[in-house]
Amino acid sequence: REYFENYFGTYEKEKIATPLGSGVIIDPEGYIVTNEHVTSVASKLMVSLSDGSQYEAQVISSDPEMDLAVMKVEAGKPLPYVHLGTSRDLMIGETVVALGNPLGFENSVTTGVLSAVNRTITVPGKYGEIKYEGLLQTDALINPGNSGGPLVNIEGELIGINTAIVATAQGIGFAIPVDKVREALVKLFNFQEINKVWLGLQVKEPPGGGVVVEEVEEKSPAQKAGLQAEDVVMALDDRRTADVLEFEKYLLKKNAGDGLTVLVNRKGKEKTFRVTLEKVPIPPVEKLAMEKLGLEVQAFTSEIAQKLGFDWLSGGVLVSGVEAGSPAGEAGIEPGMVIISLGDYKVSSLEEMARLLDRAKGGNRVDVGLAWMDRWGAHRGYARLRAR
């Protein structure tokens, strides 16, 4: 047991009941932001809305270090959502409102004031202690179950995601500022990682907003269509792109083979390009896994899942061998474990693992999400490696 805890965090058996937590809808198409620790221990997630309707949710991506995750529900209709505000101009003493499900009491609202900004706290986490920096502090009551819920201003705009409390004190709660949330969402909404769709544009957001092409990848669909670095992207399929987050979020709708109309401003003149999206080129996973991590891997089929007792697990990649002295070997990863995520993204197949490993450069940190069985039962955890 101590061996596993050293590498994978707190020892914990698989839970049967879905943990209680909160979240906030940020898009009419059903994208929900919550805390990563709310989603990480559940094999199935159900979302209950304020009108009593319930939907099964899928985790799109997550960031354990930022403690943020994005889920999606398929409601079949546009959903009410909160507008993202800004945390740049917050004033100490202004009124704030915390919403969520504290201790399981649904749709609870508490009010308070913004007590401080740029707070730093340290809390227990999967990798040991996690240091949160730049947090908002409020005296609005935040209790277990509020995690992942919205902190809003009196205009109803999202200014933070509730994330932590001080258990030994009253009236001290913390939230991740919305500007930090927005930065994380750009990465968490990465359409290329999630949908395996290749456009071939690296974009940036200049001060004041907008989307500027920073780089066009060689032989990519974007290059074939004629897009160039320094083009300013104004619209995708006639939908205006105000910032990089809107750019990434819109492209999540697309699949390989779909067409995309890109309107750009190039040196003061508007130009329109028609791009045919392609599937992300996939390198051989066996070679990448061994070269970068020291792992032998194979497909995790339903038959293997049943045989090894992983019937509760949906998707992953099976570890079939570990090179002695490799990054994976030094971290304690063993044959029979199942890789369920790399970095912020779920791994459901060999193809997904190959795509993610291909982006890991030598010396880069790789956080590997794992599931394993032992005599105590079924577990989930993380190992932190350095790619070679």
Rank of each mutant, 00 (worst) to 15 (best):
Gly23Cys: 01
Tyr132Glu: 09
Ala242Met: 04
Pro335Gln: 07
Gly316Thr: 06
Val41Cys: 09
Ala328Met: 01
Val178Phe: 01
Met46Ala: 13
Pro19Met: 10
Leu90Val: 12
Lys271Glu: 12
Gly112Val: 01
Val117Cys: 04
Tyr55Gln: 13
Ile176Ser: 11
Val347Trp: 02
Gly226Ala: 02
Val97Arg: 00
Gly377Cys: 01
Gly171Leu: 02
Val186Ala: 04
Lys15Val: 01
Leu251Glu: 02
Gly259Leu: 00
Ile340Leu: 03
Val97Leu: 03
Gly315Tyr: 09
Trp312Asn: 08
Val33Thr: 01
Pro206Thr: 13
Asn146Tyr: 11
Lys187His: 15
Ala57Leu: 12
Gly268Trp: 09
His37Lys: 04
Val338Pro: 00
Ser48Ala: 15
Ala331Tyr: 02
Gly257Cys: 05
Ala387Gln: 06
Val113Ser: 10
Gly294Thr: 07
Leu185Gly: 09
Trp312Met: 09
Thr111Asp: 11
Glu65Asp: 01
Ala256Ser: 10
Leu277Glu: 12
Lys204Tyr: 14
Arg88Ser: 02
Ile142Asp: 05
Ser349Phe: 03
Gly363Glu: 14
Gln137Glu: 14
Phe174Val: 11
Pro78Tyr: 15
Asn143Met: 05
Ser115Asn: 08
Ala116Pro: 02
Leu277Val: 13
Pro177His: 10
Pro102Lys: 00
Ala305Phe: 02
Ser61Thr: 05
Ser302Gly: 08
Pro124Glu: 11
Gly309Phe: 06
Arg359Asp: 12
Val181Trp: 07
Gln223Leu: 02
Phe300Leu: 06
Asn162Phe: 04
Lys219Val: 13
Pro281Ser: 03
Glu193Phe: 06
Leu370Met: 01
Pro283Thr: 10
Ala387Met: 05
Lys126Asp: 14
Leu357Gln: 05
Phe174Cys: 12
Gly268Phe: 08
Ser349Pro: 11
Ala229Asn: 07
Asp51Lys: 15
Val317Leu: 04
Arg239Trp: 11
Ala184Pro: 15
Leu385Lys: 07
Val38Leu: 10
Ala324Ile: 04
Ser341Val: 07
Gly125Glu: 09
Val47Gln: 14
Arg182Trp: 13
Ala225His: 10
Val24Leu: 07
Ser48Gly: 15
Ala75Glu: 13
Gly104Thr: 00
Val33Cys: 00
Leu260Met: 09
Ala175Arg: 08
Glu351Trp: 08
Val232Trp: 07
Glu2His: 03
Asn255Gln: 03
Ser220Gln: 12
Lys307Arg: 10
Asp367Ser: 04
Glu278Ile: 08
Pro80Arg: 11
Asn162Gln: 04
Ala175Leu: 05
Gly369Gln: 04
Leu370Phe: 10
Val59Thr: 06
Ile304Thr: 03
Arg1Gly: 08
Asp179Thr: 13
Arg359His: 06
Ser220Pro: 14
Asp67Leu: 05
Asn195Gln: 15
Leu277Lys: 13
Ile176Asn: 13
Leu295Ala: 08
Phe8Pro: 12
Val211Arg: 09
Leu103Arg: 07
Val96Asn: 01
